[in-house]
Amino acid sequence: MKRPGPLLTLLAGLLLGLFLLTLDATSGTKNTTPTYKPAPTPTATVASPTPTVSRTPVADASYTGRTDDDTSSVAVTIRNGKAIAYFCDGRTKESWLRGGVGDDGSMRLTGRNGAELDGRLQEGKRIRGTLDIGGGHYAFTAAKAVKPSGLYRATARVRNAKLDGGWIVLPDGRQVGILDRDGKPGPAPRIDPATGAVTVDGEQLTARPATP
């Protein structure tokens, strides 16, 4: 019997090589290397600005009233966030006070010899507070004034005397005032609320609304 020839051997080798190539193609593994993704850049948080609280200044007005013990009168005039006040018993005791007014209506006014007024505007209709003057402590209520009620003042020099007068005109028309002559206080003469005219020692003066 004859042995297979060289051609048959070559064919067998080709078939074996083809089989091995096919096996390698079908059993190959996929590339499992993870894909790199950059981490997201953190977004900066912008703080919201603190809201500005808007406040409305206290309205200009005048207030007049009496102390709780009904011994004296009090008047307060507010202009542009400032106030002037006058305390008067109509005989010899008086005091002028000044200071600022907060947007909430609170006020602390001061005057000579340690005089002090602490008060608060209530609903824009009245001022409720206390006064410490000359060793006395007074609680008071002053309601919003409608002209001609209000606070008036006149200063002048008459016959070489320095005059300084203050008047509180109450809503019922009553007037409480003191006229100081060279440092000597006494009851003030009546003024004409419509014009402010007042006669002192034969001289006609004009009392005008007092403002801070």
Results as ranks from 00 to 15, higher is better:
193 P>Q: 09
35 T>Q: 11
73 S>Y: 13
131 L>N: 03
118 D>N: 15
163 L>Q: 09
15 L>E: 02
170 L>N: 03
151 L>M: 10
120 R>A: 12
114 G>D: 09
212 P>V: 05
103 D>W: 02
212 P>N: 06
95 S>R: 10
36 Y>N: 04
212 P>W: 08
29 T>W: 12
38 P>S: 10
86 Y>S: 01
81 G>K: 05
181 R>E: 13
157 R>H: 00
190 R>C: 00
132 D>P: 00
183 G>M: 08
51 P>L: 07
108 R>M: 10
81 G>Y: 07
42 P>E: 04
120 R>S: 11
58 V>M: 06
53 V>R: 06
20 L>E: 09
161 A>D: 07
98 R>E: 15
107 M>V: 03
47 A>I: 03
100 G>D: 15
210 A>W: 04
203 E>L: 10
80 N>T: 13
129 G>M: 08
114 G>W: 07
155 T>D: 09
194 A>H: 10
32 T>M: 13
40 P>S: 08
51 P>H: 12
33 T>Q: 06
156 A>G: 05
174 R>M: 09
143 A>Q: 11
163 L>W: 07
199 T>D: 13
49 P>V: 11
209 P>T: 12
90 G>M: 04
201 D>M: 14
207 A>W: 07
98 R>W: 15
14 L>W: 12
71 T>N: 07
159 R>W: 05
205 L>E: 03
31 N>P: 02
77 T>D: 08
21 L>S: 12
183 G>H: 11
182 D>L: 02
171 P>G: 02
61 A>Q: 06
172 D>I: 04
183 G>D: 05
189 P>R: 10
107 M>G: 01
52 T>K: 11
94 E>P: 01
